[in-house]
Each structure stands twice: as structure tokens, then as C-alpha cells.
């Protein structure tokens, strides 16, 4: 098991934002983390990354907790934030070199891996430029390149399709499928449910800081008695109902 979250409660201050979250991700699995704005997706992601300390509960990545071995824990993770976070003073090539050094990858191997990714995302000619001068989509591609060259066990991708052009989305999906086939896992938070439905193996639906359900689309349909409905409809039914009850 790559990720195991056990009864996680946490948030930014003493007031919890997420309550008693439990889920897991198996090796070679793509899981969609789905929820409305403010549902607790980003808070959950920040807890997995170790950016926030849980109030209670436990998170294990490849069997270890952050407290066991922070460095090794983080090595298992590759993070692509919703809004690109770049070093304004570094070129694209230097971002690749920094990532390589951080993940202990030999420079030539890293540049070799990056070369493929640069071709895929059509950034090969921009190696000596500051990515901060790129468009939002291109910046997002830099984030993707840095994460995918590290080849971590678990990718955490916050809104992966945001800002990407159709070609970029297509390339990203291909990359994700390829990584899955190599036994790596992906947790992605997204609102693009049609795409998520096609490529995610399972879905974790979070609402009001609580995990409503986790399962395959068929399991969700069965659980909520919505045979033949697509993910959009199931999702709207689940979260819409919960809003009314709130």
C-alpha cells in the first residue's frame, strides 16, 4: 500500500477542517480526490505532504510516517500544486537540476528524463529562460516536468488540468497512465469529472471536511443506488444532498 490515511483529523489551526478521514491508495492506482470548493481536499493534501500536523490520526506513505523518517517519507512523494510555485531566479534547466539534486538523481539521468518530458510538453527550446516569464499553462508544465522526472512512488496532483491546453492535458493523461503501468500511484484532486471518470481507478469524495465515500464508480453507483449514472451525476447527488442536509 502506497498511502494509508487512518482517521485523520486536522487543519490550519486548533480548529479542525477535516474530520476522521480514512482512505488508502494501492500501488499502480489513480485515485481522484473529489469535493466542492472548501470541502477539505487541499487540507488533506497538505497533511499528506507533511505541511500540516495532524490533530489526530496517522498518515503512512510506503509504510512509514513522517515522524519515522521525514526525508525518506518525502522521497516517496511528488507534488504538483494547483498554482505553479517556481523560483523566480532560476531557469527551467536549473529547476530541473534542483529537483534532481533534491531527489538524489544523477545530473545526466535527470537531464535525459527531462529531455523526454520537455519534448512532450514542447518546452525544449526554453531551457535557459526563467519559467516565471512563461504563461500559466507553461509554468504548470514546468511543475509537471519536475515532478515526473523524480519518479516518486506517489504523485499528488492538485487540479492537474487547470491552465493546460488540450495538448498538454492529453500528454499529462498519457504520462499518468504510463506511470500507473509502471506501478506508481497518483492522487489527484480535480473538478474535471468527465476526465477523472475515464482515468481514475477509484474516487474519494470529500465534503464538509468528511470523507463521504471511497470506491470505484460501480461501487459508488451501487452505494447510492444510481445505476447507469455517470460520475458527474453521482457526485452532484452526493454533495448536493449533503448541502441540503447541512
Amino acid at each position: 500500500m502506497v498511502l494509508k490515511i487512518n482517521h485523520l483529523t486536522g487543519g490550519y489551526s486548533k480548529t479542525p477542517v477535516i474530520h476522521d478521514i480514512s482512505m488508502n491508495i494501492e500501488k499502480g492506482e489513480i485515485v481522484g480526490l473529489i469535493g466542492l470548493n472548501g470541502a477539505g481536499k487541499s487540507t488533506t493534501i497538505k497533511h499528506i505532504l507533511g505541511l500540516l500536523r495532524p490533530h489526530s490520526g496517522e498518515i503512512r506513505v510506503s509504510g512509514m510516517t513522517m515522524a519515522d523518517d521525514a526525508e525518506n517519507y518525502r522521497r516517496q512523494l511528488g507534488y504538483i500544486p494547483e498554482a505553479p510555485v517556481l523560483y523566480e531566479e532560476l531557469t527551467l534547466k536549473e529547476h530541473i537540476q534542483m529537483t534532481a539534486m533534491a531527489y538524489g538523481i544523477d545530473e545526466d539521468i535527470a537531464l535525459g528524463r527531462a529531455d523526454e518530458l520537455l519534448k512532450i510538453f514542447r518546452l525544449k527550446t526554453k531551457m535557459d529562460m526563467f519559467p516565471t516569464h512563461f504563461s500559466k499553462g507553461m509554468k504548470q508544465k514546468v511543475m509537471l516536468i519536475c515532478a515526473f522526472l523524480a519518479k516518486p512512488e506517489l504523485y499528488i496532483i492538485d487540479e492537474p488540468f487547470l491552465g493546460l491546453d488540450p495538448l498538454g492535458i492529453d500528454s499529462l493523461i498519457d504520462l499518468m497512465i504510463n506511470e500507473r503501468s509502471q506501478g506508481r500511484s497518483i492522487l489527484m484532486s480535480t473538478h474535471i469529472l468527465a476526465t477523472a471518470e475515464k482515468y481514475c481507478d477509484r474516487f474519494a469524495i470529500i465534503d464538509n471536511g468528511k470523507m463521504i465515500t471511497v470506491g470505484t464508480l460501480d461501487e459508488l453507483r451501487e452505494e447510492f443506488g444510481m445505476a447507469d449514472k455517470n460520475l458527474d451525476e453521482v457526485y452532484l447527488e452526493i454533495t448536493g444532498g449533503s448541502r441540503e442536509n447541512a
Binding site: E89, E94, Q97, M98, A100, M101, A102, G104
Partner: peptide, 24 residues
């Protein structure tokens, strides 16, 4: 820029600091 075996996490921030200074 660190080369060979020096291309590692111990030297990455020094690599960064020189660039931050020179390009500020």
C-alpha cells in the same frame, strides 16, 4: 555549479543562493 558526486542535496541550496544573489 556542483559537478559529479557534488551534484547532491547538500550543495543544492548553495547552487541556489549564488543564483539568487547574482540575478537579484
Amino acid at each position: 555549479k556542483p559537478k559529479g558526486k557534488a551534484f547532491n542535496k547538500e550543495n543544492m541550496y548553495e547552487f541556489l543562493f549564488y543564483r539568487t544573489f547574482a540575478r537579484d
